[in-house]
Design a protein around this nucleic acid. Structure first.
Lengths: 160, 160
DNA sequence: GCCGTGTCTTGACTCATTCCAGAATATGCG
DNA sequence: CGCATATTCTGGAATGAGTCAAGACACGGC
């Protein structure tokens, strides 16, 4: 239950301690940044953290993200064909919508009843531990017709 | 509705024509190979096609896969952190289970009621056109306890 | 306050995939 | 059948995301 939701530098510190991890500047900065900018890519996180700390190696950011994901402080989502994104884990089982055009990513509560998508496949040959759901589409900024051309080329014209 | 399901060299030819694409040896070979080996990676497809045709450039395989995916003859799936896989598209809305260990990938019919996961998110800010669902877990070959150690390290021991 | 071990820095490196360009080839329309 | 054009080939090189390795550094238990 206590999923140590991070929302400040202090809670980041607490969350790290609770997870049995050392408290370091890069770790705190990454957690705080992600609390304020969910669904960030590694690039964005690195840039954001550097604004605060000055210099932080890319490797350090990857290390922080890996260890925090492994201990459950963060959740990693990897939309097909796009670089990984991270968010503070809330313990609930929400999904994501990703805009095909601008890659804006937002949370979606699990629709319908509670966790219909976690229903494990019928056959028992697989032991499922996670259901990853990504809704693809267009965000409101990208919907206007003029912007659709290169994403959804008129089907009849694909002829090479 | 005819989604021109490919299952032989002849149907591959028909499907290509129907899609308005030229019929070439690499294209036919790729489609036939995928009909018999769904969820193949580019590497596997290249190897398989070369068994049949002798030499085929990697570039050609990528080209074929791209154009066929664009025209709807093939479907591309990209399990997070793994190279892309392709399958003949059947038009239905099935999902996939992927083994965390050996990456075995198999089809899963959309569980529960028909397409619960296609239910678009409540808010109208996104226009959803596809729901991508990947179930992560372990296949029967990888379930035995001895093989779990490096994938699911005992939580308490992650302490660096 | 010290020291051992965990973490960060630096820089080279892997891997999948894309791009490029010119030459060779093959498809399918007329 | 013949031609215009799409496709493929060779192969080289670039990209982007992420990893590895060795040494420097710092957190926190003592």
């Amino acid at each position: 239950m206590a999923h140590h939701l991070v929302d400040s530098d202090e809670t980041a510190l607490t969350a790290l301690r609770a997870a049995g991890l050392r408290v370091t500047a890069p770790r705190r900065a990454v957690l705080v940044w992600l609390a304020k900018h969910p669904h960030s890519t590694v690039d964005a996180i690195s840039a954001g953290v550097r604004e605060v700390l000055g210099t932080v190696s890319t490797q350090a950011v990857y290390d922080v993200l890996r260890i925090c994901t492994a201990t459950g402080l963060l959740r990693q989502i990897e939309p097909a064909g796009h670089p990984a994104r991270f968010e503070c884990r809330v313990g609930d089982n929400h999904h994501h919508v990703v805009c095909r055009r601008c890659q804006r990513t937002e949370d979606v509560d699990c629709a319908v009843a509670a966790q219909p998508c976690l229903e494990p496949p019928d056959d028992r040959r697989f032991v499922v531990d996670e259901a990853e759901v990504v809704f693809w589409g267009l965000c409101q900024d990208c919907v206007p017709a003029g912007q659709l051309a290169d994403v959804y080329p008129p089907q009849g014209e694909i002829r090479q």
